[in-house]
């Protein structure tokens, strides 16, 4: 138990990282979803490449490419900026597919009703299609966020002092690796399990929304 205060300092760092990942990743995910759905072939292709590369590589590989690779091109990011950037890319790619699926799940009749009423396409999208499509994506996005939170543990590999890194250091100092990692796992679970329960609850609420 004497390890807990240090682990909680690490947890604070982890939560900061995930907050930044969400703040950058979600708007980016929305833009990527729009790009992939674009009628413009080139925009759609560029979006698709960004998304497929981001989803195709493990988060750890992306993290190393950002941290060790970008300095080659003159872009030196701090380790925290690297982990936020790498995870935000990975996270936004998965989220963009969830958003795209949500928008495509809106019945075609809704779009046609907007068209038949003479609404501009932008208004039909923003006021009719998007609100319905995005509502159904909320549980999926929350689930993805929980996974991204677990991925913040990868930051220990580039010495960001987050929860996993703190646990690793404590283990090295005390040689009580098992205890420390069990405790660290419980700290992660203390965040993710309630989040999962909330997600399930939100999902039920949404299913009875209308």
């Amino acid at each position: 138990m004497q390890f807990l205060p240090t682990l909680l300092v690490g947890l604070r760092q982890s939560l900061w990282i995930i907050a930044a990942v969400i703040a950058i990743g979600l708007p980016l995910a929305f833009c990527l979803a729009l790009m992939v759905m674009s009628k413009h072939r080139l925009i759609s292709a560029v979006g698709l490449v960004i998304v497929e590369v981001g989803r195709g590589m493990p988060a750890l590989v992306i993290l190393y490419l950002v941290y060790y690779g970008l300095p080659r091109f003159g872009l030196n990011l701090t380790n925290i900026a690297s982990v936020i950037g790498a995870l935000a890319w990975n996270y936004s790619c998965y989220c963009s597919e969830i958003i795209r699926a949500g928008i495509l799940s809106v019945p075609k009749g809704q779009l046609e009703a907007g068209q038949a009423l003479g609404l501009k396409p932008r208004i039909t999208f923003l006021r009719v299609v998007a609100p319905q499509g995005l509502l159904s994506t909320i549980p999926g996005l929350m689930g993805q966020t929980i996974l991204a939170f677990q991925d913040t543990s990868l930051a220990y590999t580039i010495a960001v002092p987050e929860l996993m890194k703190q646990a690793y250091s404590l283990g090295g100092e005390s040689f009580q690796y098992l205890r420390v990692f069990v405790l660290a796992g419980l700290v992660y679970a203390a965040v993710t399990l309630p989040s999962t329960w909330i997600t399930t609850w939100v999902e039920r609420r949404i299913n009875t929304a209308y």
Binding site: G109, E112, A116, A209, Y210
Partner: peptide, 20 residues
């Protein structure tokens, strides 16, 4: 296109009201 559609109203088999 918008002015043409403003001249016509349309009612669908599946109603297509906005559920939200």
């Amino acid at each position: 296109l918008l002015s043409l559609r403003r001249t016509c109203g349309m009612v669908f088999q599946s109603f297509n009201l906005f559920p939200h």
